[in-house]
Amino acid sequence: MSVTTWPRRFLASLLAIAALLTMVWLSRVHWRNPPADAAELRVSWRIPAPSDRRCRPPTDAELEGVLPHMRPAEICTDEAVPFRLDILLDGDTLRSGPVAGAGRRARAITVYERFAIPPGSHGIVVEFVPEAANANAPGARAMSLDASVTAAPGDVILVAPDDNGRLYVSGGS
């Protein structure tokens, strides 16, 4: 049936406009991203992975069949140095445990941790230390931070190293 009468035309136009307005309205719905009064603590860095190189003279069995000019003076293994990361907020442990680069000979260690924290003043302690067994490997440097911050709702408190490898806090007040 075709649109012949004016009331019907009017109604048809009204419906089209209402549908359009509904679409426009649905494309701009305000949403308060919950939780409304939360803050976030982020701990983030990426450092070259120090490796622990151990060398020993080759055994006779290893030299057997190898041409004299191809014989190595020593055989070395490189192992990524595992670290330990502890994060404490107001004395409570948020995270505690080892961190290692991906794979046995990782080139980098990446740390990226996020925690929802209540707004307000907080004491933050971050310890990033090489595991005791490899503590003396070259490049295996510890990083630590002990700071007080005040986070407003919606603030992100970021703990990251500066160019000299020292941890600092940004965000909040």
Binding site: L26, S27, R28, V29, H30, W31, R32, N33, A36, A38, A39, E40, P153, G154, D155, V156, L158, S170, G171
Partner: peptide, 10 residues
């Protein structure tokens, strides 16, 4: 460095 609080969704 801020959590996106007020967001306009489509």
């Amino acid at each position: 460095l801020r959590l996106p609080g007020e967001v306009t969704l489509d």
